[in-house]
Design a protein around this nucleic acid. Structure first.
Lengths: 195, 195
DNA sequence: TCCCTATACTCACTTTGTTGAATAGGTGCG
DNA sequence: CGCACCTATTCAACAAAGTGAGTATAGGGA
């Protein structure tokens, strides 16, 4: 039931069409959730049949008609209930971990490449988060924002993503360092080594 | 195809029955992957019919017979191929993020509770990782281990998990601090505030 | 003796996520 | 003018992951 609540949360700020949501979940919300258009349209239909969102058709002249979905009272209530329920622990499920775990001597090159890519991605995300953060704070201080903003969630989740990517970069650095060390000690004709 | 490779990687060190794997994936490998027994039995069957693992029945006297699965050459090859393939970026998909994002003024108590729980879980995991680390290093230094060990994956993934949990704790601290600030500024009769 | 836990596995089902394509008008560019 | 891309959605089929219950045997403790 993950996507369900992610969609509801995404509709908290403003109503949206399936298409708009697919943009958010492809780029913006994808920071911590992703979904294809198909999933979103399906989820929206289910949410509507459960009465948690309400869609109205907006006729457009020069574009296909669209259905704009908004949260209902029941939808807001559902979010309250969801928030109050126990959170089950999340596993990482990152392919990169599996690759590193499984890597033998032959794979170190490929693993290095994978980690360099990951580090690059993490750096890009971090930069994006920093831009989003600046926009969100809009010149004000963090303290002021946390005091005055209607909802603190958007800022604090952003900080969560930011810290996650920073840690990610550090981990990639550590792994790449370790691989370097390996390579060097494999190359040097190691004099005093145990067979 | 996530579980598939996680299972293969788990069989790299030693063969196992579905039951044993379910233990690993419930506790140990669950550090970064989790699966129910049913998933594992199904996955093992698929892997066997694809020739990536091979199971042999071990007759037991005082226990039900069991099937012990081991990697085949094709299984090892599959892991090499997997490692060399591009890694697709992983989304976080953490309910806690959605909860925080969606939280309004009424939900701050519930959110606080959720974050305190998460922090506690993270601390426990961290402690477990530290124990595993000590066992893995077995008195040797990190440098020595990285130089001499057959595979560096187990240690480096452990360090990844460790860093992840440390960052998790810091994030929980930050969020809980922010919620505290909120509460205080909501309680104090704020004199010079904009309506 | 009875119940609980551990071993070892299976069946049936639902929910999620992924892939590929079809439809259909509009905008911008060279 | 044609071609690629953007808006906006739908259909069909499948693969992967998760849920819940059930079966059977054995050992240990109250």
């Amino acid at each position: 039931m993950g996507l369900r609540h992610a969609v509801l949360a995404s509709l908290l700020d403003e109503e949206a069409t399936g298409y708009e949501l697919s943009k958010r979940f492809d780029v913006s919300v994808a920071d911590y959730w992703s979904a294809t258009p198909q999933q979103l349209y399906r989820e929206l239909e289910r949410l509507e049949s459960d009465g948690l969102v309400h869609g109205r058709v907006v006729e457009q002249e020069r574009r296909p008609n669209k259905r704009v979905f908004a949260l209902t009272e029941a939808g807001r209530e559902e979010l309250h209930i969801f928030i109050a329920q126990p959170t089950r622990p999340t596993a990482m499920r990152d392919d990169l971990l599996v690759k590193l775990l499984a890597a033998g001597a032959d794979d170190l090159g490929a693993v290095r490449k994978a980690f360099e890519e990951r580090r690059e991605q993490a750096r890009n995300k971090l930069a994006r988060y920093d831009r989003l953060r600046d926009r969100l704070l809009d010149g004000k201080s963090e303290t002021a924002h946390l005091r005055d903003a209607k909802r603190v969630g958007p800022y604090l989740t952003l900080m969560g993503g930011r810290m996650y990517e920073q840690q990610n970069i550090l981990w990639c650095d550590a792994v790449l360092d370790a691989l370097d060390q390996r390579e060097r000690s494999a190359l040097t004709p190691d004099p005093g080594d145990r067979p």
